[in-house]
Simulated assay, not measured.
Amino acid sequence: MSVANRPVHRPLSPHLQVYKPQLTSMLSILHRATGMALSVGALYLVVWVVFASASPRTYAMFQSFNVSILGRIFLGGWLFCAFYHLCNGIRHLFWDMGYGFELKDAYRSGWIVVAVSLAATIVSWIVGLRLA
């Protein structure tokens, strides 16, 4: 057997199934997911503008989706993604400055990010409904 065809025995990294999910890892995954969702939401805004510029009829059709249950769930989820991504980004800025690395601080700031994101989503949704 030549050197090029010989199997290489390297240590294998444990798979994700080996690790116990922790708040910090879940929030990291959620941060990436909300970033992707914000990208999809940006495309949704582009479609919204295109429909609005096309004609009143096409805008009304698009708007009818926005006020449906599914549309409100989509927009509410997108709003949560925006608040979560913003709050967690601020948390990361503190980490970049060297603050909050202790385990208790990381957990506390993680729960604060989740709570503030949920509260901001609910408050802005209520305010938006009252203004509409």
Score class of each variant (00 low, 15 high):
residue 93 L to V: 13
residue 17 Q to C: 14
residue 82 A to W: 03
residue 36 M to K: 01
residue 60 A to C: 07
residue 83 F to W: 07
residue 119 A to I: 13
residue 70 L to H: 04
residue 96 D to S: 15
residue 66 N to R: 09
residue 66 N to L: 14
residue 19 Y to Q: 12
residue 35 G to V: 03
residue 33 A to R: 03
residue 60 A to K: 02
residue 104 K to M: 14
residue 53 S to W: 10
residue 106 A to Q: 04
residue 51 F to G: 00
residue 47 V to N: 07
residue 77 G to M: 14
residue 33 A to Y: 11
residue 22 Q to D: 11
residue 25 S to C: 07
residue 50 V to N: 12
residue 46 V to Y: 06
residue 60 A to M: 07
residue 18 V to K: 04
residue 114 V to T: 03
residue 109 S to I: 04
residue 45 L to E: 09
residue 31 H to S: 05
residue 17 Q to N: 15
residue 96 D to T: 12
residue 41 G to W: 10
residue 54 A to T: 08
residue 95 W to I: 06
residue 71 G to Y: 06
residue 70 L to S: 08
residue 55 S to V: 14
residue 18 V to P: 00
residue 68 S to D: 11
residue 68 S to M: 09
residue 71 G to C: 08
residue 110 G to E: 06
residue 58 T to P: 02
residue 22 Q to M: 11
residue 83 F to M: 09
residue 101 F to V: 05
residue 69 I to L: 13
residue 67 V to Q: 10
residue 38 L to P: 01
residue 78 W to I: 10
residue 86 L to Y: 04
residue 20 K to V: 15
residue 84 Y to P: 00
residue 111 W to K: 01
residue 80 F to W: 04
residue 64 S to P: 02
residue 69 I to F: 15
residue 102 E to D: 14
residue 103 L to Y: 13
residue 103 L to S: 14
residue 39 S to P: 00
residue 78 W to P: 00
residue 17 Q to R: 13
residue 43 L to H: 06
residue 91 R to F: 08
residue 68 S to F: 11
residue 64 S to Y: 09
residue 95 W to E: 05
residue 26 M to K: 04
residue 21 P to A: 15
residue 118 L to T: 04
residue 98 G to M: 15
residue 121 T to N: 11
residue 105 D to F: 03
residue 91 R to A: 06
residue 34 T to Q: 01
residue 111 W to H: 03
residue 49 V to Q: 09
residue 91 R to H: 11
residue 86 L to D: 00
residue 94 F to Q: 05
residue 36 M to W: 10
residue 119 A to E: 14
residue 39 S to M: 10
